[in-house]
């Protein structure tokens, strides 16, 4: 297997004041070909893991290695954030510029692109996501689904090498969900998706990673099995399932 892009090596992390740690001696890897679903019950640390990778949180012990370099300080994470895109759970946190165009161009401008180049990238990204004509819309006046897609555009405009999506489908209607599935299927970069929706994951990822305190259990399950299981146990939660094509390799 090729060199992993993200390695989380035996980290321990607890929120200040929390009774028990979220992770203890926890390890995780993401390879260059991986399309990974991240599942686990509420509070199991899915978002925390993504924030640890982005350097928004720091582990109390253990190492995080990204693109072959160990990252520890704020300075180490600056280049990481230029190359890994994180889509936040709440689009209102992500969209802070008044207009859509400015928001999508914000990342490219931070990467040092000229205003003209940033504008061009922003417009191209919007077009790619089927959001042409949105550039002058005011971000807070968008609908929930539009906000989510624009948020994704703001992340993709930075042309990331890896994408982390934190519950991208929450609050979306079926139509927008399908749009999102199409967009994600067209991506040619490795990504991690946190989601509670089995249907969505089975259209978008190869393997699922079930989070535990100290490890990440990768379980590819054949599609037929999911549906079979689903028939037997209606309304089962996403927490106990994993999916992936039969021909996919197990991660790590």
């Amino acid at each position: 297997m090729a060199e992993p892009l993200i390695v989380v090596d035996r980290i321990t992390f607890a929120y200040p004041g929390a009774a028990s740690p979220v992770f203890q001696n926890f390890s995780f890897q993401l390879g260059p070909e991986d399309h990974l679903g991240l599942i686990g019950p509420n509070g199991s640390g899915k978002t925390t893991l993504l924030h640890l990778i982005m350097g928004l949180l720091r582990p109390q012990a253990g190492r995080i290695i990204i693109f072959g370099n160990e990252v520890k300080t704020e300075k180490d994470f600056v280049p990481v954030r230029q190359q890994i895109g994180l889509l936040f759970q709440n689009a209102d946190d992500q969209l802070f510029c008044p207009t859509v165009l400015e928001d999508v161009a914000f990342g490219p401008l931070n990467q040092g692109k000229s205003p003209a180049a940033a504008k061009e990238i922003a417009l191209a990204t919007l077009e790619r996501l089927g959001l042409s004509g949105f550039e002058d819309r005011v971000t807070y006046k968008l609908s929930g689904g539009e906000k989510r897609l624009v948020s994704l555009a703001t992340v993709l405009a930075m042309q990331p090498r890896v994408l982390l999506l934190d519950e991208p489908t929450s609050g979306l209607d079926e139509k927008t969900k399908h749009r999102l599935i199409h967009i994600i299927q067209e991506l040619h970069i490795p990504f991690v998706i946190v989601s509670h929706e089995p249907d969505f994951l089975h259209h978008t990822v190869h393997n699922c990673c079930h989070l535990h305190l100290d490890h990440c259990e990768i379980k590819p399950v054949m599609l037929e099995e999911i549906y079979h299981e689903k028939d037997k146990v209606p309304n089962r939660g996403a927490t106990s399932c994993c999916f992936g094509g039969p021909d996919r390799l197990v991660n790590g």
């Binding site: 914000f106 931070n110 930075m158």
Partner: peptide, 17 residues
Amino acid sequence: VFQAMLCRGFRGVFYSL
């Protein structure tokens, strides 16, 4: 919001379009 800005490469300077 600040975290989301950091994730998009914000380093304290705004560039205007």
